[in-house]
Simulated scan of single mutants.
Amino acid sequence: MAKFLNTSATNYFLEEMIKEAKDRLILISPYLKLNDRMKELLSDKNRLKIDVRIVYGKSELHPDEISWLRELTYVRTSFCKNLHAKCYMNEELCIITSLNLYEFSQVNNNEMGILLSRADDASLYKEAYEEAQRIIRISEEVRISLERVASESEGVQSHGGEPDEASGKLSSSKLAVKLGYKTNEFLDKAVAAGHLEFRDGKHLLTVKGEKAGGEYIAKSRFGPYFRWPAGFVPI
Rank of each mutant, 00 (worst) to 15 (best):
S123P: 02
T7S: 12
I54E: 03
H159Y: 13
E16M: 06
A132T: 01
R118A: 00
S78L: 08
M112V: 06
P229T: 09
A2T: 11
Y31V: 07
E71M: 15
E15Q: 14
P30V: 14
S59K: 06
A150C: 15
L25Y: 02
A190K: 06
S220L: 09
H203F: 00
E210T: 15
G160V: 06
K49S: 08
E152N: 06
Y31Q: 05
L101F: 05
A212Q: 07
A150Y: 08
I136S: 03
D164Q: 11
I95A: 00
L5F: 09
P229E: 08
S78W: 04
K3A: 03
S158T: 12
C87S: 03
G57D: 08
I95S: 00
S78F: 12
L41A: 02
D64V: 14
G57I: 11
E60L: 09
E215M: 03
L25S: 02
H195K: 08
Q157G: 07
L14S: 04
I66C: 13
F79T: 02
V191E: 15
R118C: 00
A2E: 08
S172C: 09
I66N: 10
A193I: 11
D23Q: 14
H84T: 13
I66F: 09
N11A: 05
Y12L: 10
L5N: 02
A128V: 02
L27A: 00
K81F: 15
H84K: 07
F104N: 02
Y12S: 03
E91S: 05
R53H: 01
L196Q: 15
A9D: 13
L187M: 04
F79I: 01
G113M: 04
V107F: 15
V142K: 01
D164L: 13
G213K: 11
M1D: 01
S8T: 09
V233C: 04
E197K: 11
V142W: 01
V233P: 03
V149T: 04
A190R: 03
R137N: 09
Y129N: 00
S220A: 10
K49W: 12
F79E: 08
E165P: 07
S158H: 06
M17L: 13
A212V: 04
G161V: 13
V191W: 07
R199C: 04
G161Q: 12
R137E: 09
A193C: 05
E152L: 07
G213W: 11
E15L: 10
R134N: 05
I235H: 09
K49D: 11
L72W: 12
N35E: 11
A128Q: 01
G160H: 10
N108Y: 10
R24F: 01
S29F: 05
R137I: 04
S145W: 00
E131S: 05
V52P: 06
P224M: 03
Y102E: 10
L175Q: 06
S59Q: 06
G113K: 04
I136R: 08
V107W: 15
L179A: 12
K19Q: 09
K211N: 10
L72F: 13
L170H: 14
E111G: 05
G160K: 15
N6G: 09
L69Q: 02
M17G: 00
L179R: 15
D200K: 15
K22A: 04
L116H: 02
A21F: 07
G194W: 13
Y125L: 07
V156D: 06
I217D: 02
